[in-house]
């Protein structure tokens, strides 16, 4: 496979995953609002913090209202990580790489793009938004299933999965981080103290934004509390959106790629760093800094991948939308 195509395919995997993540995040926040008393403010601005695009939002994220934030996150062309931009990048990448994938994959992405573009003015209505975002989630799932069922499991396929899992790992660390710092500023750290009545709901919403609630309940069999949630989302190896699981998958796909020595050594480092982390202690002090470090490791992994398989010309940087 061509190095240029490898790069496009990898980014296609990332952008499609990003679309789904954005849709889930916004949907969960919308639902959460319905559960909270009107005097309790959960900032819409935290959604912007999660996506790491605050720099493009030219206003104070803490004061932002629902309509502005929704528009910024879903439809703003000036926000490089908005849903419409992610989809449009995914579409361009799949147009360029369509000969490597089953034709239906391109048709699906192209359809989804038109679907969202035609509904730009509908997303501020809560009812329409929920339908639209569910459609996004379903389409990305369909894309994943289509490739799993109809595409040869070759290097191109590995690269899509590498892109997907890297993006997913990155997003999960962001959600945990923002959960700690912004979403729950009044949290009593440690999870042993008496929870304020709505903390429970908020942690549930963190889990839900990763579709992790049900799996968490089965696995943890305890009431929802900060420590268990953070451990589950970072260190669980079975849940597909937990960081440890994403890394494990990445490692497996990387083994199948040619000339993989450097990238493998990077992923093994990252995994070790996650395995050995004492999250209970970190929750008392230093978790935020630890997550920063973890994100840097994931970013480094991206650069190792680019260095190994993509074209030497730095096309990657023009595509890079956030400090991955």
């Amino acid at each position: 496979m061509l190095s240029r195509v490898a790069e496009r395919i990898y980014w296609l995997g990332r952008y499609m995953e990003r679309c789904e993540n954005i849709a889930r995040l916004v949907n969960v926040n919308s639902n959460l609002l319905l559960d909270l008393p009107s005097n309790m403010r959960v900032g819409w601005g935290s959604l912007i913090d999660i996506s790491g695009t605050g720099d493009y939002f030219e206003r104070d994220t803490q004061l932002a209202d629902e309509k502005t934030v929704i528009n910024f996150i879903l439809m703003d062309k000036k926000n490089p990580a908005s849903l419409i931009n992610s989809l449009s990048f995914a579409r361009e990448n799949s147009r360029i790489t369509r000969e490597t994938m089953p034709m239906e994959a391109w048709e699906l992405i192209n359809d989804l793009y038109h679907y969202i573009r035609d509904r730009a003015d509908k997303v501020t209505s809560r009812r329409d938004r929920s339908t639209i975002l569910l459609h996004v989630i379903n389409s990305v799932q369909q894309f994943t299933g289509l490739l799993a069922g109809c595409m040869s499991h070759n290097n191109a396929y590995e690269l899509i999965r590498i892109g997907r899992n890297l993006e997913r790992a990155d997003m999960s660390t962001r959600i945990v981080d923002v959960g700690l710092v912004n979403l729950l500023p009044h949290l009593s750290i440690g999870g042993n103290e008496v929870l304020e009545p709505y903390d429970n709901i908020l942690w549930m919403s963190v889990l839900r934004s990763l579709s992790a609630y049900q799996m968490y309940r089965q696995h943890v069999r305890d009431r929802v509390n900060a420590e268990a949630v953070v451990k589950f989302l970072l260190q669980n190896e079975d849940f597909p959106r937990a960081v440890a699981h994403c890394l494990k998958q990445l490692e497996q796909y990387l083994w199948a790629m040619p000339n993989n020595e450097k990238v493998l050594s990077a992923i093994l480092n990252t995994q070790q760093m996650l395995d050995e982390a004492d999250l209970s202690a970190l929750l008392e002090k230093g978790l935020h800094e630890y997550i920063d470090e973890l994100q840097r490791e994931i970013g480094n992994l991206h650069f190792k991948i680019a260095e190994t398989w993509f074209l030497p010309v730095v096309v990657a940087q023009t595509q890079e939308q956030k400090s991955a």
């Binding site: 496979m1 190095s3 240029r4 195509v5 000969e99 034709m103 000339n259 074209l311 010309v313």
Partner: peptide, 30 residues
């Protein structure tokens, strides 16, 4: 057409002419 023929679609910077005056494409395998 590339897709229908099952061949690579390349751009100029995917190709390189080496010292042996043969044309090569840059792939993930080299």
């Amino acid at each position: 057409l590339a897709q229908q023929m099952g061949v690579e679609l390349v751009e100029g910077n995917d190709l390189v002419v080496d010292v042996d005056d043969c044309v090569y494409m840059r792939s993930i395998d080299g």
